[in-house]
Design a protein around this nucleic acid. Structure first.
Length: 484
RNA sequence: CGGGGAGUGGCGCAGCCUGGUUAGCGCGCCUGCCUUGGGAGCAGGAGGUCGUCGGUUCAAAUCCGAUCUCCCCGACCA
């Protein structure tokens, strides 16, 4: 059996049409389906279980760093949104409005939340009086609506699910520290749970969140060479506290405005999993977030129900007791081969096969989804071996993605080369930038590439080169890419 | 929002140009037999009114108009 041979052709090859491949995986793996309204999808159980796993692992980190969960309203009065004009103008084209309740027209329009800075800010103004009330460290899990013109399942939909943290602090330094702490929390989460390597850094002013003083993000490279923003963390400064009057009496008994942050990751991460790890046979789920970590397939031959099934049941029980998410697929109406393909499409990381031959040898067959490798394992050592293999798959997926990211990150100092790389290879391009928005705009216009992130740690290590566009002295080392 | 393409049983498609009996095909689904170590085989069967609305016509999946949705490219977008 050749390693990269496709057993069954059921989806468009990734290399043939990436976009179509992506959409077909989502439907064949039953992650999501289109709802009958433009740009809105239904997240089906298999996709939603991935989200639940993401939630569970992220929520743990959020709480470990001292935050607590709360829930704020879906509706935001227009006047609240208007208080921070930069913020309103940033979101205006994407806001859905409620103008009528029952038969009555509303006196004031209500926005369906595009994000919650405004409504949360108005509440913080009531809750915060003294430095003793600070910091406020609140997170909420919620749905968000943004009227998007171009939508794609998970990557950009009109309604989506996310988590948004909103914190308030005594000092600018403390808010900045929080912003960066969360950025690295996201990086750690995405790399260790989703097995997706990211580059963390600051956004250029052009890409900054509407109303933020500074925006930071983690960016990943999808396997078609386009970048995807995986999470953002904003230092809001005092923009919102000034307009919402979020004041406190400080240690010197003076009135001060609080310093705020906000940060979020969304169901877009599920799209990133597909585009980072998927192959021509379907999904490849990292074990940490896989809805099913191990599928047990009994080889149904002859009197398998008497001989094979009891062993399969015992294996299922043992793996369940070992704390794994296990599925025994003992359906009679499908052949083993059919089941193999089915679970490969859904990206189940590890498959355990047991058949008559294995039972004679007192063993089972382990098949890794990531590399399609088969190994015989004695039944006595099964559970520990399965656990170990899952860990290997988790790190192997990360390593594969990291290798891809490194191979597709190129340092370029010449604009001609810059354009050439984008045309032929895409990926991240590391270049110096003078800091002038005009250069950034020109580059975007001419190459469709934007500044994804200005790395936090790398700048100091190198002598500045010239701006890749205007040749003036470079001020920032930036990662450029075409992005989703 | 601009340009292009597409909506026909669950999925993928043919039919439309050149209107005319019961709208086909493959996969899937159901029943039975037989099979099962990489999506088995045979036989029988169910399921669509052609995205939606309107118009032309004796007659519309087919022609005309509007509208909704999806896909691709671009503009826009934390």
């Amino acid at each position: 059996m050749a390693k990269d041979e496709r057993f069954v052709k059921q989806i468009t090859a990734k290399s043939e049409d990436f976009s179509r491949w992506y959409l077909e995986i989502i439907r064949k793996a039953e992650m999501a389906d289109y709802a009958p309204m433009k740009g809105i999808m239904v997240i089906r159980p298999y996709g939603y279980t991935i989200w639940e796993n993401i939630q569970r692992l992220m929520d743990r980190r959020i709480k470990e760093t001292g935050h607590v969960n709360a829930y704020f309203p879906l509706f935001i009065p227009e006047s609240f949104l208007k208080k921070e004009m930069e913020h309103l103008e940033g979101f205006a084209p994407q806001v859905a409005w409620v103008t009528q309740g029952g038969q009555e027209e509303l006196e004031e329009r209500l926005a369906v939340r595009p994000t919650s800075e405004a409504i949360i800010g108005s509440m913080y103004a009531k809750w915060i009086q003294s430095y003793r009330d600070l910091p406020v460290l609140i997170n909420q899990w919620a749905n968000i609506v943004r009227w998007e013109k171009v939508t794609r399942p998970f990557l950009r939909t009109t309604e989506f699910l996310w988590q948004e943290g909103h914190t308030a602090h005594e000092t600018m330094e403390e808010a900045q520290e929080e912003t960066i702490k969360v950025l690295y929390m996201y990086k750690d989460f995405v790399e260790s749970e989703l097995a997706i390597p990211v580059i963390e850094g600051r956004k250029s002013p052009r890409e900054r969140f509407a109303g933020a003083m500074e925006t930071y993000a983690i960016e990943a490279l999808m396997s078609d060479g386009k970048a995807l923003q995986m999470g953002t963390s904003h230092n809001l400064g005092q923009h919102f506290s000034k307009v919402f009057e979020i004041r406190f009496e400080d240690r010197e008994q003076k009135q001060q405005y609080v310093w705020q942050t906000s940060w979020g990751v969304s169901t877009r991460l599920i799209g990133a999993l597909v585009m980072t790890h998927g192959d021509d046979s379907g999904l490849r789920m990292p074990p940490q977030v896989a809805p099913i970590q191990v599928v047990v397939v009994p080889i149904s031959l002859g009197s398998w129900k008497e001989n094979v099934l009891p062993v399969a049941l015992a294996i299922e029980k043992e793996l369940l007791e070992a704390g794994l998410r296990v599925k025994l697929d003992a359906r009679e109406e499908f052949t083993p081969g059919w089941k193999f393909s089915e679970w490969e499409m859904r990206g189940v990381p590890l498959r355990v096969e047991v058949g008559p031959k294995d039972i004679k040898e007192n063993r089972a067959v382990l098949v890794r989804r990531d590399v399609q490798q088969k190994d015989f394992v004695g039944l006595a050592a099964l559970a520990p071996q399965v656990k170990k293999t899952l860990q290997q798959i988790q790190s192997s997926l990360f390593e594969q993605a990291l290798r891809f990211q490194r191979e597709n990150t190129r340092s370029v100092s010449d604009y001609r080369e810059f354009k050439e790389v984008l045309e032929s290879k895409r990926g991240f391009i590391r270049s110096w930038w003078c800091g002038d928005e005009a250069c950034e705009d020109k580059i975007k216009e001419e190459t469709m590439a934007s500044i994804r992130v200005i790395p936090l740690k790398e700048e100091a290590k190198e002598d500045p080169g010239d701006c890749v566009y205007c040749r003036k002295k470079g001020r920032e080392l930036a990662y450029f890419a075409r992005a989703y």
